[in-house]
Amino acid sequence: MIDTSSTADISTVGPKLSSLRKQLNEVLIGKSDVVEMIITCLIANGHLLFDDLPGLGKTTVAKALAQSMGGRFSRVQCTPDLLPTDITGFNILDQETQTFEFQKGPVFSDFLLADEINRATPRTQSALFEAMAERQVTVDNRTIPLPDSFMVIATQNPVESHGAYPLPEAQLDRFAMKLNIGYPQRSDEIMMLGNSVGNQTDTSPVYPVLDLKDLKSIQAAVANVEVCEAVRGYLVDLGAATRQHPEVELGLSPRGLLLWLRVAQAWASLDNRSYVIPEDVQAMFFPVLRVRVAGQQPATDAILQEIIESVPVPNERMQK
């Protein structure tokens, strides 16, 4: 249930996020579109996966995002010898009291950065299933809730296959979107180099600019953004089209649809609109579908383009 008492007005969402946007744009130079997507995922309360080549700023921007928020931040560097308990925590025997005491793992934070997540074993990756989907952790029959604002920001390197374990579909389905950062433009790279001259660090300093309370109210406002039946129908049709496409082995799940709806709402709210239009759905199509449409061959953008072209965009609201 959404707590509407602390819901922000849609018109205030933009100003509240302006500082965050500015800070992230300073960290990730020339990638304002990626920054918008990151913010969208953040206010949609979804988990984010960065998938790109090494050195493009995945970890940097993930770290900057986490640090821009006022909440707790944890980082896990995923390696093949990482154990599930290294993420969730474990019980240790307290010698004094002779009782087991639970030592919380890095998952107990507001923002968890899982760097190089595909280097962890599937067993370890699976430790995040419950945390990502239900925002809780169960250890030794004890269920411990995570904060409402819990967000996983994961990065992965698609090039290297040695010592890497592809993320299982169930895991992928828990991410709201997958983003590719891509190489910056020449002018942006010149600016980046210029900024590094005279600075000991490669990136601009990052400060908390949005507290969790504001984030929570924004997320509540996003959830209240109106989605009419025509747009809902459009979403469902697109989802159905992914399931029907011959080259897509696993189509969009209902959970994926729900996440897509939410990020479309977030995208609409960033445009200061209190209602979703088909363009919002289309704007979120590639980020949302890239992460979860798995097929016999890699779900390329060409396939996704075919899918989006097979469904007419609603011109008018459906008659009741």
Partner: peptide, 10 residues
């Protein structure tokens, strides 16, 4: 257009 078609409340 968008308000008329896709926003029922306003």
């Amino acid at each position: 257009w968008n308000r008329m078609q896709f926003c029922e409340s306003i």
